[in-house]
Computed example of a mutant assay.
Amino acid sequence: MQKTRLDTARIRAARQVIDPVFLDTPLYRCEALEPVLGCAVSIKLETANPVRSFKGRGTEVVASLLAGQGGSAVVCASAGNLGQALAWSGRGRGLDVTVVASRFATAAKLERVRALGARLELVDGDHEAARERAAAIARYDGIRLVEDSLDIETCEGAATIGLELVDAAPSFDAVLIALGGGALATGVGHVVKARAPHAEVICVQPLGAPAMTHSWRRRRVVTTDSADTIADGVAGRYPIPAVLDDLLLVADDAVLVRESSIVAGMRILLDHAGLVVEPSAALGVAAVLEDRDRFAGRHVVTIVCGGNVDPDAYRRWVTATPVRESHESHGFRESHGFRECHGFRES
């Protein structure tokens, strides 16, 4: 395999600085899901920690290195999960943390960022506007900017999930990974391709936020004019070239799923696995629902990457009447309040 930016020795070293509360997360065969999905399913559960997502693995590495270098302040842009994780990791190391987010981000995530002691700045617009503002703060104040997926620490922190996965479940046929900025996919993918090359690395993204998937398919950066999906944790519009280069080396496939399938995946994980998950964490199940024949009779692992949800929105999603859509449909029912992401550009 060609070399990615990641290094296996550094990934192993990352385990030594990550708080154990984020490590060795549950991995188990969930037999209750198998009659529903038509394949053997194992869950790697990344929600049972203080920030309820996998992001703490990467921010622990970032904060440890920054504190060791004498740094005192850090800023990031976040849809909510990275901000919580950086706030938690920074608080434990005496760092002043600023999180920039869209004012339209999930309220529960933003409240938790504040509760963890970070300074929260809200901007109009989407996550890309928050990224621009965070970069401006870093330049003006002369502090460390944490850029999820671009900063190798975030990828190698996430890659520790891959180490745990291949050590505990060497016989799986495919791993389904939520695809947003790419830290989780490139991190886990790097380890799986090095240690379990027989297994497929399949990345999953919403139809309403397809930039990285289009980029992977075309092997060049493709940006989109907008993103419209309930899976806010993966709703980026501007793929990072270096991250795409890594993804091209480790991903066997990248697929897009409909909003209705994401909601169905959340409902299935609640009803059959007892798990409350955010939309991004249901992408793997959504992929199986949309292509049952592909996975029939196989053993797949899905990484349940986050559980931070707005309670009211979650109740609406999991109690709503399922909407049937054709596999050819690239749009969303008006009753859901979603639109397809129109237009994309290559760069």
Rank of each mutant, 00 (worst) to 15 (best):
S89I: 10
S89K: 03
S89P: 00
G90S: 04
G90T: 04
R91F: 09
R91H: 14
R91E: 12
R91P: 03
R91Q: 14
G92N: 13
G92I: 08
G92D: 11
G92T: 10
R93I: 11
R93P: 05
R93L: 14
G94A: 10
G94F: 12
G94E: 09
G94Y: 12
D96K: 14
D96C: 12
V97R: 01
V97E: 00
V97I: 08
T98H: 07
T98G: 11
T98A: 09
V99M: 06
V99S: 03
V99R: 02
V99N: 02
V99Y: 00
V100G: 02
V100W: 02
V100D: 01
V100T: 05
A101C: 15
A101Q: 02
A101L: 07
A101N: 04
A101P: 01
A101F: 07
S102D: 09
S102W: 03
S102R: 01
S102Y: 04
S102L: 10
S102V: 08
S102T: 11
R103K: 15
R103W: 07
F104C: 12
F104Q: 12
A105S: 15
A105M: 08
A105P: 02
A105H: 03
T106A: 15
T106P: 05
A107D: 07
A107M: 14
A107T: 12
A108V: 14
A108S: 15
A108W: 04
A108M: 11
A108Q: 14
L110K: 01
L110I: 05
E111M: 12
R112M: 09
R112I: 08
R112F: 07
R112K: 15
V113W: 01
V113G: 00
V113Q: 03
V113Y: 00
R114L: 11
R114W: 07
R114N: 05
R114V: 13
R114K: 15
R114H: 11
R114P: 04
A115R: 14
A115T: 10
A115K: 13
A115Q: 15
A115E: 15
L116A: 01
L116Y: 00
G117I: 06
G117T: 07
G117P: 03
G117K: 09
A118W: 01
A118N: 03
A118H: 02
A118M: 05
A118D: 01
A118G: 07
A118K: 00
A118R: 01
R119N: 11
R119A: 10
R119L: 09
R119Q: 13
R119Y: 06
L120M: 10
L120F: 06
L120C: 06
E121S: 05
L122E: 05
L122I: 04
L122K: 01
V123Q: 02
V123P: 00
V123R: 00
V123C: 06
V123K: 01
V123M: 03
D124A: 14
D124V: 12
D124L: 13
G125K: 07
G125S: 06
G125P: 03
G125V: 06
